[in-house]
Design a protein around this nucleic acid. Structure first.
Lengths: 122, 122
DNA sequence: CGTGTTCGACTACATCTGTAATCGGAAGCG
DNA sequence: CGCTTCCGATTACAGATGTAGTCGAACACG
């Protein structure tokens, strides 16, 4: 939403986008192989996300089930826009140019993007 | 460099990338129409950037002249990569797809990117 | 030479972030 | 009905960040 999501919080969001609703314990479990956080840490992050309105919780007995408050698509689009605005004056082509120049897009990547553009143009 | 640059610090970097070397006062002046920061704030940001190794200073009499320690190109490429990694599993095409879908690229934008890709492919 | 000006350096302080421990109440076990 | 356990809520605390004031030294002006 309007509130910015930090890196650590983002990790939690990814888990919930992959599967939800989940309780705190479950979220911590899915995070286990990516991050060395304790359950307490995950709980804190969930609370903060809740306060920021990035996740919603639903009471299930004595515990909460958390789910994202918006789709990953929306988040990703927002972050992408933010970056493109900050670094490329809002224009997409320079981003493509930069990454392309430095990262050597595979032929497949190029084909994919070209197909995309063709579709948009029509 | 390895050190992350914050949003406020980034604003300062932009000024220096546009023109350098500049002393603190000059940087504050160029920032004036973008940010309501006082000279003191700008000085703090410059010190932090110095500590992070993002700018270098050269003594000129009793004052310092600051200049970026690396090209904007490098910074931009790094940030772009960071975002693409975090949000798109390192693949560029989904980013293009998302932005394209939501932002309605102009015909010109599309042509530009296509030209770019054609060039890369060859 | 004295005094106001100008710098950078240092200090300040609230908020956000990363990371976690503790506390009080509810639930379950015996 | 007690004791253990599990949960969310509260508290903790260091480092980063946004934003800025103060201090001591060097200069410039008169």
């Amino acid at each position: 939403m309007t509130e910015r999501i930090s890196d650590a919080e983002h990790e939690v969001m990814e888990v919930l986008w992959a599967e939800s609703p989940l309780d705190a314990q479950a979220v911590a479990n899915r995070l286990a192989d990516r991050q060395p956080w304790t359950l307490a840490t995950v709980k804190t992050l969930l609370s903060r996300l809740l306060a920021k309105g990035a996740v919603a919780h639903e009471e299930a007995g004595r515990k909460f089930l958390y789910r994202p408050a918006f789709a990953r698509e929306a988040y990703v689009a927002g972050e992408g826009r933010r970056l493109v605005d900050r670094l490329f004056g809002g224009k997409l082509s320079p981003l493509v140019a930069h990454l392309a120049e430095r990262e050597a897009l595979t032929a497949e990547d190029i084909a994919e993007i070209e197909a995309l553009l063709r579709e948009i143009r029509s």
